[in-house]
Design a protein around this nucleic acid. Structure first.
Lengths: 209, 209, 209, 209
DNA sequence: GATGAATGAGCCTTCATTCAT
DNA sequence: GATGAATGAAGGCTCATTCAT
């Protein structure tokens, strides 16, 4: 009876083993330069074994992306769980988003990669899993904005759109990081993000439209 | 001296010829599926000739990216040249940015590609050319914000940062387009952008900080 | 003793189960595209189990080939069992052979595959089983020719060789089916076969040699 | 001016070099076991080079098949060019066909392979070249039958169909070679072919139908 | 200046077979 | 008897880049 269970467990372990190898390579050489053969070699498995556990290269990276989203989610979740004013929470989320993009740059890159790649689409079920995480994160921000509204700090007529705007701003500015010396005129990413969060909060405060 | 000039002119013509082929293929088959051999065939040149005029595949695409930035710049420039209130201008810029990302999707993709790719860095001279275009665009927005401040519409303490925030928001939200059915909960890209622009303007209006 | 029998029966059932799956896949996806793993999945058995009952992939297909030969045999047997003149029987055999190659194209293909493949030889016991069926079919034709001779319709000095010639002609012309538009100059397979059968019968009629 | 010509010549030489390697491997290990990588290694060329000269594996084998058909054609052509009675010519063609299938077994196999393989179709231009050779061979036989008719030896109402029947018989019987010990009951391939040719000629002689 | 033949590492994927459980 | 995870060689094929002419 233990057989099936053990199989299950081992199956999970193998997938983890593969993921470990894929993650390491991804972080070392970038997404484009990571091939199944390399993953197999690093994981000390036959190529065929990889294909036994994952149907395609994409599936592996989808798992990795999910890991990243989970990490980002948990960072933000912790903030929302704290006893802070809503505006403070938004500031903290901006901070943590930036830190995630720096400290977990590799995860950030992979998330970003799929978001930015025009031609890459996942199979529906993969996409669902991924999108769900994104929705959860938006949900946390929506809830923060709502609590701010309840406390009289904000006036949001459409918290969902505001949340998306907020996340979009963070995301877009993070993309500009490469341009620090030119477009950003020397402003650090940190300063820009902080500025943008303040601006966003300000826009939320006394809205009339 | 006529010799040198002719050389220069011919050189430019050849590059244009190559660019034409690369652009056509890029738009037809996408970034990933376009190979140097195909470009050579389409341009009716030998592969070696391509390499004489461009050091690498990336250099070609950098030129195309520049084209794209020029296009975006001119869209925005036209707005700034109009006789409109500053807030109207920002709204119009948001609109045109979105339209650019849709109508010139191929150019947008290539700009985005280089911005999002973690591992790709240009040789300094390429980077300069590209960044200069980005700076110009930021400059236009800065000027718009400044004119709004002069007209008493806005109160911007740091127009440059505000401009970057604005562009970052537009850029980030455009990246989310893929998520319409899930994260965006059915909101169209147009609605979200419009909402975000209003929010941005609102934040600019009665700022105290 | 019931034990041994049951073992035998179960053994037969398993083989049938495997054959069912292999046949279905063969007919659906073709010979080349059918793999043992697929057969195992379709048969709801482990791959190892397949290998317990069949030593190799080829052995499975040999069994299927036998099925095909049996089918062809029974088509011809029915004709020989009828109350017809010998020449009519030959005509009918030609007809049925052609129909077999069309209506049971998958079986025909697999028979043909092994016949045409230069490098594939079966283990002796497999070969025997297969050849036996072939011999039976030849036997039926021999018997038909003999009855024609007895009835004064034919004059065959070597009925066995004539039978082989007959079958060889049918087989060879069926191979030419692909060439209808060119070599056959538009003649349908049906017309060609019919012509050849008539020719064969004619050659059988007034032979002096 | 000599450049283009030399290029042409070299191009032909390279193709020959590739063909030599492919032919050698084909004859040594069989069709199915011959891969592009092996051909490249044997030809002492890079894999890419093979693909520069041939679009696919199929194209190479099509060339080889053409070689084979040419060989068969020339064997038969020589006979038709001789000063023989038509029936003698047919006997000689049967003989040569058999010898071709034995002495040039590898070429025969490759011709046969494509004829027998259900799933393999060539690109139209390849198919044309191949079919043309087949038609030429049929043409030779048609001409032989016609000359026999003119000489009063035969009575053929449809020489083309008779020619196809003749070739089909030879082809089909050659396929049966594998079955010598069983179906053929010990008759040699030679005897069977000879018998069949006589039968065919006999059928051609006093036809009434 | 222009050419295009040549490269070969590397890509993703398949599959018959084995063997410990 | 039955399982199915593991293998890894091999498959066809692509492509940026070089270099002798």
């Amino acid at each position: 009876m233990g057989l099936k269970e053990r199989r299950q467990r081992e199956r999970g372990q193998r997938r983890e083993q593969i993921l470990d190898a894929a993650r390491a390579l991804l972080f070392e050489k970038g997404l484009h330069a990571t091939s199944i053969n390399q993953i197999a070699k690093k994981a000390e498995l036959g190529v065929g074994t990889i294909y036994f556990y994952y149907k395609s290269k994409e599936e592996i990276f989808a798992d990795l992306q999910e890991e990243g989203l989970e990490l980002l989610f948990s960072r933000i979740f912790k903030i929302c769980d704290m006893d802070l004013a809503a505006d403070e929470k938004l500031r903290e989320i901006g901070l943590q988003y930036r830190r995630f993009s720096e400290e977990n740059r590799d995860y950030y890159d992979i998330i970003n990669y799929f978001l930015a790649s025009p031609g890459i689409f996942f199979a529906p079920n993969l996409k669902n899993k991924i999108d769900r995480h994104g929705s959860w994160i938006i949900g946390l921000i929506v809830e923060t904005i709502n609590s701010g509204t309840r406390d009289g700090l904000f006036q949001s007529l459409n918290p969902r759109r505001d949340a998306v705007t907020f996340l979009g701003t963070l995301h877009g500015l993070t993309q500009f990081r490469k341009l620090r010396d030119t477009v950003l005129a020397g402003d650090s990413h940190k300063e820009i993000i902080s500025h943008a969060v303040d601006h966003f909060i300000n826009g939320l405060r006394d809205r009339m439209s």
